[in-house]
Design a binder for these strands. Sequence first.
DNA 1: CGAAAGATTGTAAGTACTTACTTACTTTGT
DNA 2: ACAAAGTAAGTAAGTACTTACAATCTTTCG
Lengths: 217, 217
Amino acid sequence: MAVTRAGLKARPKKQRRMSGQERRRQIVRAAMDLFARKGFKGTTTKEIALAAGVNEAMIFRHFPTKGDLYAAIIDYKMDQCCEWISRVHEEAARRKDDRTMFLELARGILAFHEQDGTFMRLLLYSALEGHELNRMFFETQVVEHFEFLADYIAQRVRDGAFRPVNPRVAARAFLGMITHHAQVRELFDPQGRLLNVDSDAAAAELVDIFLAGVARR
Amino acid sequence: MAVTRAGLKARPKKQRRMSGQERRRQIVRAAMDLFARKGFKGTTTKEIALAAGVNEAMIFRHFPTKGDLYAAIIDYKMDQCCEWISRVHEEAARRKDDRTMFLELARGILAFHEQDGTFMRLLLYSALEGHELNRMFFETQVVEHFEFLADYIAQRVRDGAFRPVNPRVAARAFLGMITHHAQVRELFDPQGRLLNVDSDAAAAELVDIFLAGVARR
DNA sequence: CGAAAGATTGTAAGTACTTACTTACTTTGT
DNA sequence: ACAAAGTAAGTAAGTACTTACAATCTTTCG
């Protein structure tokens, strides 16, 4: 067996080694999970390396600093958020089928969070940490989708389909009940001790309360 | 000027020194603010000492470890949460004045968070970090108040004042829209760019949407 | 009343360890 | 032979916490 200059055993022959891209992806995946659970400062590069199955030095072959790795993850994650929302919005704007629109939106939000708990966690950690990318995410995607929803509600008030509510308050109310439910399930009550219904049923009932709340009397 | 054993200048005479209790309170206050902004791992004992205006060693005169200091703060904060809610609940149970009950609850929650942003931050940080005291808080106070609210809504359904909604979903909807609003204001949108109404107006409109949403048709 | 003793508060300096990141080499694949 | 992936060992700085003393305040006693 080969011996290194320090007299220690060299790594024995292994299976085929990874390409740079594969390895990068693996580091990102391990880091994402750790950052989601522990936050930026709560995660060490040693832990990331261990979870990724690489030497710590490898991390710095792909990212200049630990902060760059975190920023790449936040950026990627925040980009994932809203790709599907635009399609739901377009349908709604065309058909003005309120129940379907709000129901699809609610189901989409709940399914998105259910399929990937790291999003909510990274969103909240980066907000608490005051991360610049979180602020950018808010100022672009969050604002855009909130404004679209408020505009839609305003239009439905003008159409006479909704009673004269403040569209921004109504948008806040709707997003609040849906997002809060996802958050409680992810952070406080994963077993659903307080409210144990599947997400489609939850979406249906929350949307029903919302629509009744903004319906013409 | 006196000289220490190391030959350095002794601390010059100062104004009257603090009692142990006063100093402890000051350390706790500084630590609370830092933990709220940066989380447990993101805060160093050096920063806490600097913010409190004491030597780092003083922290360990009052708390065995940094973790003990954090636990004391989380415990104290979570205890503050719900003292006032019981009074609101009692009134409501007696008078069955739904609008006043939900309005007082909503205003109380919003005022509580507006007066003290550290609560929301510590709640979320400790939840993300998986802190045991957060779990205990959830399993006691959160569960208790949620159950009370769900019971109240169930009673009102039986009374015929509310339509046959799932009381737990309705409680989730109500708490969701209120708490989400407080959270967005604290973490994402302190300037109220998306929704700039004062908290009493927000409470009134959110409660109106909620009550309309659960009213008999 | 004042000095001395004791209790309490305060702190400089230190310890043992951890951290993010770098270096210089080794191993593997083309 | 060269490029690329992998790593042991290291560096400089930082961390939570401890130690041993100094300074200040209170109590006791003559």
